[in-house]
Write a protein that binds this DNA or RNA. Sequence first.
RNA 1: GGGCCCGUAGCUCAACGGUCAGAGCGGGGCGCUCAUAACGCCUUGGCUGGGGGUUCGAAUCCCUCCGGGCCUACCA
Length: 572
Amino acid sequence: MARHLITSAIPYINGIKHLGNLVGSQLPADLYARYLRARGHEVMFICATDEHGTPAELAAAKAGKPVADYCAEMHAVQKTLAEGFRLSFDHFGRSSSARNHALTQHFARRLAEHGLIAEVTEQQVYSPTDGRFLPDRYIVGTCPACGYANARGDQCENCTKQLEPRDLINPRSAISGATDLEVRTTRHLYLRQSLLRDRLRAWITSRTDWPVLSTSIALKWLDDGEGLQDRGITRDLTWGVPVQFPGAPWQGMEGKVFYVWFDAPIEYIAGTAEWADAHGLPDAAWRRWWRTDEGANDVRYTQFMGKDNVPFHTLSFPATILGSGEPWKLVDYIKSFNYLNYDGGQFSTSQGRGVFMDQALALLPADYWRWWLLSHAPETSDTEFTWENFQVSVNKDLADVLGNLVSRVTKFCRSKFGEAVPAGGEGGPREAGLAADLAARIRAYEGHLEAIEVRKAAAELRAIWVAGNEYLQAAAPWSVVKTDPDTAAAQTRLALNLIRLYAVLSRPFIPDAAETMMAALGCTDWTWPDDVPAALAILSPGHAFATPDVLFRKVTDEERADWQARFSGTRT
RNA sequence: GGGCCCGUAGCUCAACGGUCAGAGCGGGGCGCUCAUAACGCCUUGGCUGGGGGUUCGAAUCCCUCCGGGCCUACCA
């Protein structure tokens, strides 16, 4: 038994996430966590909401609510949706928690003590009308290169030219439209991560087993141009972790908070502390996951994230950890994902394009989405969601291959032997062959899950389901029963045990259906099939079962067309 | 502008520089009748984006062009 710490990139607070967000971190992290638990490992799976930053403040203002209230409400919404998708977090925390405030301030102080914090005075655009400093992209104006009227201060979306806010003609606030912008002097803390460049490079180049997506992005940031740049870690905002606090090694930082990307990854640690608090456990309970001097030496830490998050997890956060000089656990493996596109374009939270988590659950149960998303996870390149593909995949894999298998076996048994595992007969070469075939496939399935090869694992699981149908077709108990009832009974007994085996194996992907299968069999034995022949004999003669309802229904052409039309525009 | 990733069958994807480039879906045929008109078997289908090069051997390595995507440090 090993100990696994798993974190998913924490979803931003300003709204409900779409399926692309889900498949890019939380869902594959859940698959991995569920698999490792099934194998008997000790798992700590942490996620949270990322609640700070300008967009949260603006979203709250738009909703007409205090930002703290808005975040609390949206956290509750996201927590409910996570539960709806059966994301098995040990704790779903909040980056605004007291724990994260304390830890973020702790790390900042430690970094300062090691000479890794610089105070920098700089000029930034301020909008008196909005009462806030404006990030570059919140300043819009006419592009000096192409004349596009709504170019952003960081880049013109029309001609893709990189811009500075001062380049814009007739600049105005993207929030209020105000034009009375002024440049003000402000002072900020910078993380001197350039000083850690060599240590970071040594660490990253030693991670030879990471996906190329993870390492190539990190190396580019380390070596591009003048190399890794120092990074501002504070902002002039009100909602966040205060920079000025008792014991802070700097002065005059009132009214400033830490940058969201500084405090967000620290929430992985703080979220584990929140977990301990929620269970009334002492600090040692969470520190044994994070402090290598307090028991975390044998922990394997895996992070899941979309490719846009990679720089922060390979550079900024490790710089924080390394720079602290304290024995905090560094990540062992970073699994990063490309993007899921929607019907020829991108999913977009800001534009309301695509299918969002709440909408998806209103259409179909979580397992349908989990299966499609995981079996099509964008591991090597961006992947496209289309309704046709979704319909075909769900109907064929879930309804026909797995669901119908459960149905044909239980109904056949009910009609010929009654609703109990039949006695009599014994297996022969065909049954031994099936067990051997399944054993080989299960070992391959385990290998793919341990390597977090999500699509390959899904394909192998499907092949395992298919093997059941192949066996039934070859054994043909519906024919055998006419002349040799004992042999048919043995075949049926094996087939019923196959359902139990499939419930165990499928649970990481489709937890609800797995529970339904197991419940129908009146069984609670979720033991992982290390010994396949033994696993195929757990349900013994006389064990009663119930013929379940349709496990997965099919998506009709009418529904597909309806959904396609309904989700073709933007969310209102 | 710079960097990275991707381009393989109608579709979604596989293939440590090494048997004939493989699966699933779709198409065609056969079988079965227990089952959600479900299942199984067979079959169809590719100049691996174009062009050059390295090599005994290239989907794989190098160059170049074309197409798509992402990042480029103040959105997160």
